[in-house]
């Protein structure tokens, strides 16, 4: 075990313990085990702050660590929202991990989080925001999305608008009732777990198996002052935990899929798009959103093109960079 003083940290999170939070849960277990209980990290699910306030609370040091989702407050960290762009080529957890890590190390991003007195620790690897829908027939081609009322947030909503769908604001808690009645035709949620816990699979008719409309970046952050005060031997534990966190997250999502996908298969038609279709989606739906993002953010002095290119290059490198 690692010797050291008694230290107790807090991580802000929200919702319930679930696949997304498996990373911070693992970190808490890891540091406790390795220090013989001297270094403990408590995770507060909504008890230490709401999802939109946690970055503020972290910045003044009330918390040592927190999870955030950048899409909940895009302009708190405008450059970082590059990871929230729709239809980025992040087909699997390993690619996503590599891409997020590269962005986390980019000097501009590091500086952006310094404004909040925070440094990026790890990604939470959210899966693609696939749709469950109720419209009939299912949107098997790009043109079929025209006129569908979809619940999709941020950049995904923008991309769907470019495809002719109508993004509609609906709080997650009311999704079930509104979809049941056809007030919304399709709903995008992160992970099969989120679909399952909002019961969309019970009233939906189809599921987009490989649309990959995009995902969100929900990293874990560390307050820089608290980090500076942490004994070096404890700091080393954070690096040690990183690969384990990746494995734990990937395993947690796989486990959720392993229970949910068969469940979905029994009730939903799986809509699978060909490579050509997906290329078309990207061209018609995503490219304008990317272009607009680059234009807007570049005007703010952000190396927007460079960040987007970094994502595309890292994703294409297949792990050999």
């Amino acid at each position: 075990t690692v010797q050291g003083p008694k230290v107790s940290w807090k991580i802000g999170a929200w919702g319930k313990p679930r696949a997304v939070t498996e990373g911070i849960e693992l970190l808490a277990r890891h540091v406790k085990e390795r220090t013989g209980g001297n270094f403990t990290i408590t995770i507060g699910y909504g008890t230490l702050g709401g999802e939109k306030e946690l970055l503020d609370i972290l910045s003044r040091g009330a918390l040592e660590m927190t999870m955030i989702c950048s899409s909940y407050h895009p302009d708190k960290q405008p450059a970082y929202t590059v990871l929230d762009l729709p239809f980025l080529p992040l087909p699997d957890p390993a690619t996503q991990w590599r891409v997020h890590d590269a962005i986390h190390k980019h000097p501009f991003i590091v500086k952006e989080f310094e404004k909040w007195n925070a440094s990026l620790y790890v990604s939470s690897l959210l899966p693609q925001y696939e749709f469950v829908g109720r419209s009939s027939p299912p949107p098997r081609k790009l043109a079929d999305w025209k006129g569908l009322r979809v619940r999709a947030i941020g950049g995904i909503g923008e991309a769907m608008r470019n495809l002719g769908a109508v993004p509609t604001s609906v709080p997650a808690s009311e999704v079930y009732t509104l979809m049941e009645r056809g007030t919304v035709d399709a709903v995008s949620f992160p992970s099969t777990y989120a679909h399952q816990s909002n019961k969309t699979h019970e009233i939906g008719k189809w599921y987009t198996a490989n649309l990959s409309p995009g995902t969100q970046a929900c990293p874990a952050l560390i307050n820089r002052d608290h980090w500076a005060k942490l004994p070096d031997q404890y700091k080393a534990l954070f690096d040690e935990a990183k690969p384990k966190i990746f494995e734990a997250l990937a395993a947690a999502y796989k486990k959720a899929d392993d229970t949910n996908i068969p469940l979905f298969r029994r009730r939903l038609e799986f809509v699978t798009y060909s490579e050509a279709d997906l290329a078309e989606f990207r061209k018609a739906g995503a490219q304008p959103v990317w272009d607009a993002w680059v234009k807007e953010r570049a005007a703010q002095g952000i190396p927007a093109k460079e960040l987007l290119d970094l994502i595309l290059k890292t994703a294409a490198s297949g792990g050999k960079s």
């Binding site: 306030e53 503020d56 910045s59 009330a62």
Partner: peptide
């Protein structure tokens, strides 16, 4: 720290 946690 305390004021920020309350003030949000």
């Amino acid at each position: 720290s305390g004021l920020t946690a309350a003030g949000t």
